[in-house]
Design a protein around this nucleic acid. Sequence first.
DNA 1: TTAGGGTTAG
Length: 463
Amino acid sequence: MEQDNVSGDLVLYSNLIDLARKLCDYSKAISIFTRLKASTITPDLIAYNSMINVFGKAKLFREARLVLQEMADNAVQPDTVSYSTLLAIYVDNQKFVEALSLFSQMNEAKCPLDLTTCNIMIDVYGQLHMPKEADRLFWSMRKMGIQPNVVSYNTLLRVYGEAELFGEAIHLFRLMQSKDVPQNVVTYNTMIHIYGKTLEHEKATNLVQEMKKRGIEPNAITYSTIISIWEKAGKLDRAAILFQKLRSSGVRIDEVLYQTMIVAYERAGLVAHAKRLLHELKRPDNIPRETAIAILARAGRVEEATWVFRQAFDAGEVKDISVFGCMINLFSKNKKYSNVVEVFEKMRQVGYFPDSDVIALVLNAFGKLREFDKADALYRQMHQEGCVFPDEVHFQMLSLYGARKDFMMVESLFEELDSNPNVNKKELHLVVASIYERADRLNDASRVMNRMNQRAIRSHDHT
DNA sequence: TTAGGGTTAG
C-alpha cells in the first residue's frame, strides 16, 4: 500500500496495531501508532486504550501515562477502560503505589468505576497489605450498583489468605456456595493454596476431590500447588506418583508444573531425580518443545536449552516470541554474547521485532563483541521504525559510544535525548557524566554535572 | 463497507 501511495485509515492502522500486540511485538505496534499519527489520522478512544496497553506491555510506563494527557489534548475523554488498562499495567509490574495514585486521579476526574476497576483495586489493596481497604471496597460494590463476580470473590479470597485471615477466607469460600456464586478452578486453586499455608494438606487434597466431583477440572496450577503442598508435608512419593500419572495421562504440563516437581526433588535432596527430569527435556515426549526450552532456559541449562532451541527452530516450531527472549536472556546472563547475536538474527529472520529488554541485551552483546557499528545500526534502525525506548536502552547506547571513545556521538546523542521530553534528565546527566569520568575526561564530567545543577537552580527559581 | 480496549490462581 505504501508503495502504491494508498494511505491507510484508522481501521487499518488499528488492525495492524492489534496484530502486533497479539504477537507481543510492542515495538512494532508503537511504530505503527507513530505512523498513524504522522498521517494525520486522529486516534479514537479505543485506539488510545490499546496504546495504553501497548506502552505498558513494553514497560514504557511514562509513555503509557502520557497517553491519558494526549487524549485530553485531543478532546478524547479517557474512560473507565483507559484507567483500568493503566491500573492493570501498574499491577502487572508491581507498581502498586502508582496504581493507588492513579485511582485517586480517576476518582477526582469523576470517572465511574465498574466491575473490572473494583476487581483490580481489591487486588491492589491486598498487595499493599491493606486488607481492610480491600474488604471495604468489596462490600461497598453493591451500594455502587456493581454485582461482585467470581473474580471479585477470588481476589478477596486471596487477599484474606495472604493477610492470614484464614477464618474469613473459609467463610467467604462457603458463602459463595450458599449464595450460589459460581466457583471456578481459580477459586479452588486459591483455597487449596490457603490450606497449604495453614499446613492442612489433607483438607487441600480433599478440595481437589471436591472440585472434580463438582465438574471443575483441576489444571496445571492445581497440580503444581498440590505437589508443593505434599512435598512440604513430607509426602514426596505421593507427589512423584501424581506427576508420573499426569505425564502419561495427557494433562497439559506447562513449565511451572514441570519446574515444581524438579524443585520438590531438589528440596528433598534427591538431586539425581531432579537432573533426570531436566535431562528428559532434551527429547520432550508429551511436552511442546517451546515449553521444554523455557524450562531449560529458566533452569540455566545452557547446553541443553541451546540444543533443543536449535532443533525446534530448524523444524520451524518456534512461534512464540518469548522463547527467543528467554534464550537471549540465558545467553546474556552466561556472557555468551555471540549466541545472543545468533538468536537475535534468527528472530529477525522470521520477522519478529525485539522488545526493549531484548534490544538492551543485544546492544550490550554487540558492545562486548566490540561490534559498535552493528549496535549503532540497530539503534538507528529501531529509532527510524519509530520505536520508543525506555531510558535504559538510550543509556546503554551512550555507554557504547563512550566505550568506543566516540565522544562526538556521545555529545550528539546527549543533546538529542536532552531535548526529548520523555527522558529522565537527571539520570541522563548522571549517565553522561559517569561516561566521561570513566574515560578520565573530568572537565567534561563536571561540565555535564554543572549543567544539571544550573538547570535545577533555574527551575527552582521559576517555581 | 471495514474493527478494535481493561480484572483472579502455581
